[in-house]
């Protein structure tokens, strides 16, 4: 399956990665090769095969509704690149 530059740009936007023009071209070529390679799975007949979204046969894993100790705000914010009071701070959202 061919992957064009528009698709790459859209995918990069979805992944929130800024790509320079040269990166875009390089990635475009590499992804083209890789996708060409992975396309080999398309020749298999998988009509009646169940997808293995989990490889384990386990199910219904739940936990009891018992409270555990939370972090203090100081600890929670310890690694924050920017904070204000007890909040994490991020640049303004401009859509």
């Amino acid at each position: 399956m061919a992957i064009d530059n528009e698709t790459i740009k859209h995918v990069a936007h979805l992944a929130r990665i800024e790509l320079q023009q040269n990166e875009l071209e390089k990635l475009s070529n590499q992804l083209h090769d890789i996708i060409g390679f992975i396309d080999r799975i398309s020749k298999l007949d998988v009509e009646n095969i169940a997808p293995a979204s989990h490889i384990l046969p386990i199910s219904n894993v739940l936990r009891e509704d018992n409270p555990q100790v939370s972090l203090t705000p100081e600890k929670a914010l310890e690694n924050a690149p920017d904070k204000k009071g007890n909040f994490f701070s991020v640049p303004k959202i401009i859509e």
């Binding site: 409270p67 555990q68 100790v69 705000p73 929670a76 914010l77 007890n86």
Partner: peptide
């Protein structure tokens, strides 16, 4: 396991999992 508790100081009902 963070207790659900409204009206608390910001980022005080959090743990590594819900963060």
């Amino acid at each position: 396991g963070c207790a659900i508790d409204f009206g608390q100081a910001p980022n005080s009902c959090v743990c590594p999992i819900c963060l």
